Amino acid sequence: MLRHVLPLLMLMVSNVFMTYAWYGHLKYLAAKPVALAVLISWGIAFLEYCFQVPANRIGSTVYSLPQLKIIQEVITMTVFAAFSYFVMKERLTMNYLYAALCMVGAVFFIFRGN
């Protein structure tokens, strides 16, 4: 059971770092030089990879590569929606729901077997 859940938890942590590396600079470093934002984002991305690489290594023992990719995308969209709403103060629209429904479909098809 731990081999199934641990990669998911690690991918969630990884995605929090990834989202901050990709978009956090828009809020927290907007007035700073781009080069500084790049360097800070690279540092955050390093932390992302410290969780993402082991998560995929562990996850590949119980999930197929396509399953890992879809899991990653679902987690990415979930973390991004939360980040958009709570950190960036963006309004969540119905398009987020529609995108989530598409992701549910992707999960269904990738996990249903041939």
Rank of each mutant, 00 (worst) to 15 (best):
L2V: 14
L2Y: 15
R3T: 12
V5N: 01
V5H: 01
V5W: 07
V5L: 10
L6H: 03
L6K: 02
P7N: 11
L8A: 06
L9D: 03
M10T: 05
M10R: 02
M10F: 10
L11T: 03
M12I: 15
M12D: 09
V13C: 11
S14V: 01
S14A: 15
N15K: 06
N15W: 05
F17R: 03
T19Q: 06
T19I: 11
Y20N: 11
Y20I: 15
Y20V: 15
A21M: 05
G24N: 08
H25T: 08
L26R: 10
L26V: 05
K27N: 04
K27D: 04
Y28L: 09
L29W: 04
A30L: 11
A30Y: 08
A30W: 06
A30N: 12
K32R: 13
K32S: 15
P33A: 07
P33C: 06
P33N: 12
P33W: 14
P33T: 02
A35Q: 11
A35C: 11
A37D: 06
A37P: 04
V38M: 10
I40E: 07
I40Y: 07
S41Q: 04
S41P: 01
S41F: 00
S41D: 01
A45R: 10
L47H: 00
E48V: 00
Q52W: 07
V53Y: 14
V53L: 12
N56S: 05
N56L: 10
R57D: 13
R57L: 15
R57Q: 14
I58L: 08
I58G: 02
S60Q: 00
T61W: 11
T61C: 02
T61A: 05
V62M: 02
V62R: 03
Y63C: 00
Y63K: 01
Y63V: 01
Y63Q: 00
S64W: 07
L65E: 13
L65C: 08
P66G: 09
K69W: 14
K69Q: 12
I70A: 07
I70V: 15
I70T: 11
I71P: 00
I71M: 03
E73M: 13
V74L: 09
I75M: 09
T76N: 14
M77C: 15
V79D: 02
V79S: 01
A81V: 09
A81S: 08
A82H: 04
F83I: 01
F83P: 01
F86M: 04
M88L: 14
K89D: 12
E90I: 04
E90F: 09
R91E: 12
L92D: 06
L92T: 05
L92V: 07
L92M: 06
Y96G: 03
Y96A: 07
L97F: 14
L97A: 12
Y98R: 03
Y98I: 02
Y98C: 06
Y98S: 07
Y98N: 00
A100V: 10
L101N: 05
L101I: 04
L101D: 06
C102P: 04
M103E: 00
V104K: 07
V104T: 04
G105V: 09
G105R: 05
G105K: 06
V107S: 02
F108M: 11
F108C: 07
F108Y: 08
I110F: 11
I110V: 14
N114Q: 11
N114C: 09
